[in-house]
């Protein structure tokens, strides 16, 4: 029943969308990470004028579907062409590519900042106090003590968020961007063979995720190198 020649025919077509999928994911994950760190740090502030707007932003973007966010950024803001032109932003919102990047970035920022906020809070109080007592400034305490520990703590959750982002890029097809899922949809409407097309596209995503998971595992291994035993002759003998 399985027609391998058909798989071979559609695979290159689907792979042609992979660079766009990766580009969308990478740009929004990197930009989102920078913003998430900023928001997580800002949330350590005591001022409600800083904390409350951030909480609001996080609640809105975590409480609504990504699909709504993409539609709102693309079609919703498309209504305000003249206002956006007036402030020089239309050039950005005119392009479906940037609209998708903006929606994806804001979405991952909201989730990422929550992950990082939790991780920062999980750093033991004693360590922070120890750092302060040896004379490190707030800035240096964050740089050398809190953030490195928080990042390692956050890594597994952040890894999940990255996979969710890869999955999220599939929604870009809805605003005319022909990434892997968009191409898959096109192929189905041409060939009417949903099963084969989706198995093939699914395999591409799984391979991509697998590569990311391996890379993150390597990163985690590297970040926890101080926790591992140094091999010694005594350990080996026992």
């Amino acid at each position: 029943m399985i027609d391998f020649s058909f798989f071979l025919e559609i695979l290159p077509k689907l792979l042609a969308g992979l660079p766009l999928t990766i580009e969308l994911a990478l740009t929004s994950i990197v930009a989102g990470f920078v913003l998430a760190v900023t928001l997580a740090l800002a949330q350590q502030s005591e001022s409600p004028f800083v904390v409350l707007p951030i909480r609001g932003f996080v609640a809105v973007f975590r409480g609504t579907p990504l699909l709504v966010q993409i539609f709102l950024t693309y079609y919703g803001l498309g209504q305000f062409r003249h206002q956006l032109s007036a402030i020089g932003l239309w050039a950005v919102f005119r392009e479906p590519y940037w609209c998708a990047i903006i929606a994806l970035t804001l979405n991952t920022t909201a989730y990422g900042s929550e992950i990082l906020r939790g991780a920062i809070q999980s750093v033991p109080r004693g360590l922070v106090e120890a750092a302060r007592s040896v004379g490190l400034s707030t800035c240096l305490t964050y740089r050398h003590v809190i953030l490195p520990l928080a990042f390692r703590q956050a890594l597994p959750s952040y890894g999940n968020e990255i996979i969710l982002m890869i999955k999220g890029t599939s929604l870009a097809s809805i605003v005319t961007l022909m990434e892997v899922t968009g191409i898959a949809q096109g192929l189905i409407s041409q060939t009417y063979r949903a099963f084969e097309v989706f198995i093939c596209a699914g395999a591409i995503y799984l391979t991509l995720n697998f590569a990311i998971i391996r890379a993150l595992a390597a990163l985690e291994y590297w970040m926890s190198r101080h926790l591992r035993h140094r091999p010694s002759t005594r350990d080996a003998a026992s």
Binding site: R81, I174, T176
Partner: peptide, 18 residues
């Protein structure tokens, strides 16, 4: 050439000047 799921969506984009 840009592909849209519905014609209403490309109408919106024409109005938006995209």
């Amino acid at each position: 050439i840009r592909e849209y799921k519905t014609t209403e969506q490309h109408d919106l984009d024409l109005a938006a000047g995209r």
